[in-house]
Design a protein around this nucleic acid. Structure first.
Lengths: 295, 295
DNA sequence: TGACTATTATAAATTATTTTTATAATAACT
DNA sequence: AGTTATTATAAAAATAATTTATAATAGTCA
């Protein structure tokens, strides 16, 4: 079976017009007719029907079924091409969410530079969820990801290297500032300044507010921890962050949480199950493990 | 790209001999040579190397990479064929682990029979783990599966319909028989008669023994709950089962567990994410939901 | 109604691809 | 050196895919 036929079919399912598909692929219309016929013969089933009454193409259940698998196969082929290109050109793309890039990466970068590996290394920035998908479809080869629960996917292998509790930060002048430890429920009624760009922080925060049955009043959301800390220092509100973004300021106090079963910021080195690592990628991985592992 | 080339390549990786692969596929040897050349041209990389010194075929990293994806693609194609066959022939294969078949299925069967659907329905028996794989590769279309944690896989959709706590069963003459509820830790030192064929029961049991730091003395394992119950009645040992396998006997007493965070026997209706259901399969699913859902 | 349009199907010719046949090349083994 | 096992190469043959040209079907509109 030719995968080209699957590509034709996949496109036909989308645009529901043989002639348009032919145009898009730069072939003539009978090519598409024949391709579909071949697939119908191969799977011994009708794939599309012509609804003359409403003048449109109807996809049979078998067609729907094939469409799903055709997509999977085409995705798999594209990924293969991506991976082999990275493999032969010795390209290494490391996915880094901003928080992890700020806190963990400088340490790693020094070691990588020392071994002359920073040159071949390309970084790809984005949120943890976005990067997970980038890793899945081959745009990245390795990634450091944050999560609240241990990552577990069939297509990805995650290796946890750090766990950080979430903390509450309040202005030094805030009534709670004298405390070292508080329960999250004590924040009921507080105003919050939150981190916008981190899916992980927000997930953890939402878990805690839901568990403690309150609707938080979020007065501002920022993408920069410095901005957040400045607002907290000015008593605009309190915030909820991990210690790894703390700048140890005089005017802001860190409070630990006393709650049982707190969410944690879990950092993991993640790779694709199906990916064969280049020597460089293996080295990068080794450096990541050595640098981040014994924390 | 022709998937036949992937099949040739996949086989070549296994047997590492062009001539043998040709034989197995009933083609001549240059066919294989050419197929590999086509793939190497397509992906612009060497896939295999000839190690003249050790006289064997070496697979390059790119080759390893392609091999992984070739397998995935071939599996996907086989699954497609399976699913379309079931779809066009209106075949429905329902996977049932023995415990679930005994307890839940009789109720369902009555309803299915009433609607004349029992004829087209084929059942496939096997352990929960084995059935999960059968479902994945298309040997089954639907399955009822037991598990200790909610099932969550990318390729499968699980719909929980029941949760049962595990219980301990002891002979009526056993010292613990007067109790209604016990802690699992109180079973330290007991002899156990266990269920052999259930992965789920064993997982749950192991979790509890590990958590309570003891090595259970298992004196017998059986595949039939009646055998187990007879042994328990005869005070050969105590057992650990869900209530759904209980036959409400006079000579055996059921004890509930008082432990926090007990494992549970979770029963789910499971289907494949990629699977398009036939009308019959939809009906079967509806009956399953209606019969099992409002418990 | 009949000309016109948009769409898909069919058949023969053409082109491209795959497989075979025949044979060469390489290197290990005796 | 001859033999064997293995893969590569080249030309011929066989298959398969695509195009060209045209038919078929049904809807649209004057």
């Amino acid at each position: 079976m030719n995968t080209k036929d699957l590509a034709y079919f996949n496109q036909l399912i989308q645009v529901k017009n043989f002639s348009k598909v032919a145009q898009e692929f730069g072939v003539t219309q009978p090519t598409i007719t024949m391709a579909i016929k071949r697939l119908e013969a191969e799977f011994q089933t009708k794939l599309v029907l012509r609804d003359r009454i409403h003048n449109e193409l109807v996809v049979t259940p078998s067609g729907e079924q094939l469409a799903i698998h055709a997509q999977n196969i085409l995705r798999e082929l594209a990924l293969t091409q991506q991976e082999i290109t990275h493999l032969t050109q010795d390209r290494t793309v490391l996915g880094l969410p901003p928080i992890i890039e700020n806190y963990y990466f400088p340490r790693v970068a020094a070691h990588l530079q020392a071994q002359g590996m920073l040159a071949n290394l390309q970084t790809l920035e984005g949120g943890s969820v976005w990067l997970r998908n980038a890793l899945r479809d081959g745009r990245a080869d390795l990634a450091l990801l944050g999560s609240t629960a241990p990552l577990s996917y069939k297509t990805l292998v995650a290796e946890e290297f750090d766990r950080q509790p979430f903390n509450v930060f309040v202005a030094a002048t805030h009534p709670l500032a004298k405390r070292k430890r508080i329960y999250f429920s004590e924040l009921k009624g507080e105003k919050f300044v939150l981190f916008n760009s981190s899916f992980v922080h927000n997930t953890a925060f939402n878990t805690l507010t839901r568990r403690n049955h309150f609707r938080p009043e979020v007065v501002f959301r920022a993408n920069d921890t410095h901005v957040i800390m400045n607002l907290v220092a000015a008593n605009v509100g309190v915030t909820f962050l991990t210690d790894i973004v703390d700048q140890h300021r005089q005017d802001v106090v860190r409070l630990e949480l006393l709650d049982d079963e707190q969410p944690e910021f879990i950092s993991s080195i993640v790779t694709r199950t199906s990916h064969v690592l280049t020597p460089t990628q293996k080295q990068v991985l080794a450096v990541l493990r050595a640098t981040l592992g014994d924390d």
